[in-house]
C-alpha cells in the first residue's frame, strides 16, 4: 500500500498528547526537577546532581521499608492468587446463586479504602471489636497496636478480605469463557479433576491471572490508605511501608528533594517488577520458562 505524507495527521494526536502531558508527564517532570535540585522557593534553586539519590539509597530505614514492602507484596500474591482461583473454581456456574455470590464477593471492593481501615480498627479492637475481643477471650493476647506480629496478621487479613474478591472475579471470568467442549473432551479422555485444572482451566486463565498478578502486585506495592488508617505504620516501624515512609519524608519532614528522588526510585521498582512478571507469565504460556 502507498503511504502519503501528511503532517496534518499530527493534529489528531494533539488532544491525547495534551491529556497525557497534564496527567502524567508534567507532574513526573516536576518530581524529576525536585530530585536533582535543592529548591528553596520560586527562583531560588541549587543544582545538587545525584546527592538526594545517594542520600536516599544509603538510608537504612528506607531499606527496611523496602524489604517490608517486598514481604508484604509477596505474601499478598502467595495468598490472594491461589485463594482467588480456588474461590472461582468453587463458585456456581449457573442459576440464581451466581448473582448472589457475585454481589457478596464484590462488596469489599465497593468500600472506600480509608473506611476499610476504620472497619478493621473497630473489628480488631481488644475491648469492643468482634474479632479482637473474641480472640482475647480465648486467652490469646491480641492487640495490633502493641504487637508487630498482630499488626501484620490484622493487615494481611484486611488485605486478603479486601482484594481476594478481585482475583476471584477475574479468575471466574476466565473460567466462564472456556467452551463446554473442553470439559466434555476431558471427560471423554478420562482426565482427572486435577488434570482438567492443570491442562485446561489454568492455561485458559493465564491471561486474566496475568492481569490479576500485575494489579495485585502494583496495588499492594503502593499500598497506603489502609495501613495508614489501621496502624499508622506502627507499632514502631513494623508496618511502615514505602509509601508511608515516603509521605513521612515529604510531608512530615518536608524534605522534598530526597522525597522526589525516593519517588522516582519507587516508580522504577514498580515498573521493573511489573515488566518482569509480565515477561515471565507470557513465556510460561509459550512454554519457554
Amino acid at each position: 500500500m502507498d503511504k502519503t505524507e501528511n503532517n496534518r495527521a499530527w493534529l489528531l494526536v494533539i488532544p491525547v498528547l495534551l491529556v497525557v502531558a497534564f496527567s502524567a508527564i508534567i507532574p513526573l517532570m516536576t518530581v524529576v526537577n525536585f530530585s536533582v535540585q535543592d529548591i528553596f522557593g520560586p527562583g531560588e534553586r541549587v543544582w545538587v546532581g545525584t546527592e538526594w539519590f545517594e542520600e536516599v539509597l544509603a538510608d537504612t530505614r528506607l531499606h527496611d521499608a523496602l524489604w517490608r514492602q517486598f514481604l508484604f507484596s509477596g505474601l499478598v500474591l502467595l495468598i490472594e492468587i491461589p485463594l482467588g482461583v480456588m474461590i472461582a473454581l468453587a463458585m456456581p456456574r449457573e442459576g440464581w446463586s451466581v448473582s448472589l455470590v457475585l454481589v457478596v464477593l464484590a462488596l469489599p471492593l465497593l468500600i472506600p479504602w480509608n473506611v476499610i481501615g476504620t472497619i478493621w480498627i473497630i473489628f480488631t479492637r481488644p475491648d469492643i471489636g468482634l474479632m479482637g475481643n473474641t480472640i482475647n477471650r480465648l486467652g490469646l493476647g491480641f492487640d495490633h497496636t502493641a504487637s508487630p506480629l498482630d499488626a501484620w496478621v490484622t493487615l494481611m487479613l484486611m488485605e486478603v478480605w479486601h482484594w481476594t474478591p478481585l482475583v476471584a472475579l477475574l479468575a471466574y471470568a476466565g473460567l466462564k469463557a472456556i467452551p463446554d467442549a473442553y470439559f466434555q473432551a476431558a471427560q471423554i479422555d478420562g482426565a482427572s479433576r486435577w488434570a482438567v485444572f492443570r491442562y485446561i482451566q489454568l492455561p485458559k486463565m493465564r491471561g486474566v491471572l496475568t492481569i490479576a498478578i500485575l494489579l495485585r502486585f502494583m496495588d499492594s506495592f503502593l499500598i497506603y490508605a489502609e495501613p495508614f488508617v489501621l496502624t499508622g505504620g506502627g507499632p514502631g516501624n513494623a508496618t511502615t511501608f514505602l509509601s508511608i515512609y515516603l509521605v513521612k519524608i515529604a510531608v512530615g519532614q518536608f524534605d522534598l528533594g530526597p522525597a522526589a528522588a525516593f519517588s522516582i526510585i519507587y516508580f522504577l521498582i514498580v515498573l521493573l517488577f511489573s515488566w518482569i512478571f509480565y515477561q515471565v507469565l507470557q513465556n510460561v504460556g509459550r512454554g519457554r520458562a
Partner: peptide
C-alpha cells in the same frame, strides 16, 4: 468423541 470446535490442550 470429536467435537465441532477442535479441542486441544494448549500447553
Amino acid at each position: 468423541q470429536v467435537f465441532q470446535f477442535p479441542v486441544v490442550y494448549d500447553t
